[in-house]
Amino acid sequence: MIFPAILFFVCALLAIVGAVMVILAREPIHSALALILVMMSLAVLYLLLGAEFIAAVQILVYAGAIMILFVTVIMVINAGVEERTDFSKIAKFAGLPLGFFLLLETAHWLYHSAIGAAIANGPGAHAEAFSTRELSTELFRRYLLPFEATSILILIAVLGALVLARKDE
C-alpha cells in the first residue's frame, strides 16, 4: 500500500505550510486558521501512527475548543493587523542562521538516531492500532495521580478565568 506514504507527505507538507503561514500572516485570524490547518494535518498523522483516540482528542480539544476560543477572543477584542517593529541587528544577522543551523542539526540527529530507524505504519499495515481501552486503563491505573491533578488544574484554570473576567465592584 502506497497510500500511507502519500498521506504522510501531503499532511507533513500541509503542516509545514500552515506553520509558515502562522508566521507570515498579518491578520491574527489568518494565523489562527493556519494553526488549525497544522492541527488537522497532525490529527491525520496521528491516525497514520495508529493513535485514533489521540487524533479524535486533538480535533475535539485543540481544533474544536482551544482554537475556537482564540478565534472568539480575536473577534471580541477586534485584534487588527499586526504592527511591524524593527528587531535588533544581531537577531537579524546572527539569529536566523543560528536558528536554522540548530534546526538542521536537530533534524540530522533525529534522523540518524536509533529510534528513528523504527518503522511506523498505522492500521492497515503490519502494525496494530493502539487500543483505546488499553490507553484508558493506563490512564486510570498508572497515571491516576497526574490525571486527578489535571482535573484540579482545570478547576483552577476555570476559577482563574472567572476571577479575571469578573467586573470590578
Binding site: 500500500m1 502506497i2 500511507p4 506514504a5 504522510f8 507533513a12 503542516a15 509545514i16 506553520a19 509558515v20 502562522v22 508566521i23 497544522v38 498523522l45 497514520l48 501512527l49 536558528g99 540548530l102 534546526l103 536537530t106 533534524a107 533525529l110 534522523y111 540518524h112 538516531s113 529510534i115 528513528g116 530507524a117 523504527a118 518503522i119 511506523a120 505504519n121 499495515a125
Partner: peptide, 18 residues
Amino acid sequence: SVIPISYYLVLSAVLFGL
C-alpha cells in the same frame, strides 16, 4: 511503502523550530 519514525521526528523538529 513504509515510513520510518525518523520522518515524523524530523517533521516534529521542523514544526517546533517554526
